[in-house]
Design a protein around this nucleic acid. Structure first.
Lengths: 220, 220
DNA sequence: CGCCGACCTGAAATCGCCCTCAGAGGGAGC
DNA sequence: GCTCCCTCTGAGGGCGATTTCAGGTCGGCG
């Protein structure tokens, strides 16, 4: 989500949005917003109508004229019908009048995302050129599909969720195999082996052994 | 456009909507709305939350659970955040609080239609050279017609709606057979088998088994 | 260098998910 | 009632997935 100059919403809102699972970037001005959109391609834009360098409507119109189809929600204190209609006419997807609650904002953003059908991207875990898609259960390295069994998949998923962190064999047993405790750690070694053969054999090594501690997934 | 029980809007509004180019049908109740939607497939639904035979939210939830994806805008006098959030949570696309102007309503309907148009699914579902036409109930692969029973059809339709995503056997049972939970997954296997014999036997395989998870429809 | 524990690998044994088939039940049309 | 087709169920078996284990390899340490 790209948040454009909603500075009066304050850090509480910002934190709450992040708590709701949004990855929020901030732009302070219309000019900055334009750059960010082209660069980082946000899923949705929440934009104040009044910007330091002009008018949110105008930014929106320019984006649309350049084929930027990202959903845009306007925030504003102006509640006249003319303003609302103008917001939609320039290509806005929703128009929220202040004051509003966080819950309403989140609900409206989700509604727009659902309609835009962009919510699916949330299901991809990544590490370097390795990707794991939780909806299709597909794993690719460098774009090449890799076939994994369910256990291999769950193990890789667990490593990806904890990438950069070292996870111990007991931890892995609990989260991947569901063993409450103890049990043969030899199995983990076997499956780490399977994964390495399928994933690390091409490209730089991603799965690393930390002797006496466990395993970790990271880019070198 | 289907207008559900917005009777207090009066004939002026109705005429004005028609003047704005909308082909408006009216339903007086939730029950009637459901029938109209299935029958005449409107582009958009504008629905009062308070209906003589119940709750607009509930109707919306039921429609969504039956894969009706038509955009829905709620009209209501209730302006509490809980109501709004509920409206979006059950699958609504917008929520307009009375009193509102005709211009705002039109602008919001157009905005929703515009967004829905970008992601529009027409009545033909496709995956590679496989096509399923929801209006004529015809299925073809590579132009060749394929005869399916109703259950086979519904199963294929469900797979097509979720193509690229893995659906579990319980999910399939709920959406195709209507079982609320549990039940014999063996039946799903049987019907997957039927579909494969009719569809996958010519051309590249489209139906894939994800062992321990479910099935998915995708091109290679 | 030699020892030890930790880790890796391959192969065999077991498990259980899934596929297929045959047959029973049920509804529609004749 | 008879037939045809659709639907559902259960048994049997195949084969991929999982587990287990033995033997080899590696790294750290004295």
């Amino acid at each position: 989500m790209l948040l454009v100059d909603a500075d009066d919403m304050g850090p509480t809102f910002l934190g709450a949005l992040r708590d709701n699972g949004f990855e929020v970037t901030i732009a302070a001005s219309g000019r900055g917003a334009f750059g960010t959109v082209l660069l980082s391609k946000p899923d949705v834009i929440v934009m104040d109508v009044v910007l330091p360098d002009g008018d949110g409507f105008e930014i929106c119109r320019r984006m649309r004229s350049q084929d930027v189809r990202t959903p845009i929600l306007f925030l504003t204190a102006r509640d006249s019908t003319e303003d609302k209609v103008r917001g939609f006419r320039v290509g806005g997807d929703d128009y929220i009048v202040k004051p509003f609650t966080l819950d309403e904002l989140v609900a409206r953003v989700r509604a727009v995302l659902r309609r835009a059908d962009l919510t699916r991207r949330d299901h991809v875990l990544r590490c370097a050129d390795l990707e794991l898609d939780d909806e299709s259960y597909r794993v690719t390295r460098n774009g090449v599909a890799i076939g994994l069994s369910l256990t291999e998949y769950k193990l890789l998923r667990y490593l990806l969720l904890n990438q950069g962190r070292v996870v111990s064999k007991p931890q892995i047993l609990v989260h991947v195999w569901g063993y409450d405790s103890g049990g043969a750690g030899g199995n983990v070694e076997t499956y780490i082996g399977y994964l390495r053969r399928k994933i690390d054999h091409r490209g730089p090594q991603l799965i690393h052994t930390i002797r006496g501690v466990g395993y970790t997934l990271r880019n070198h």
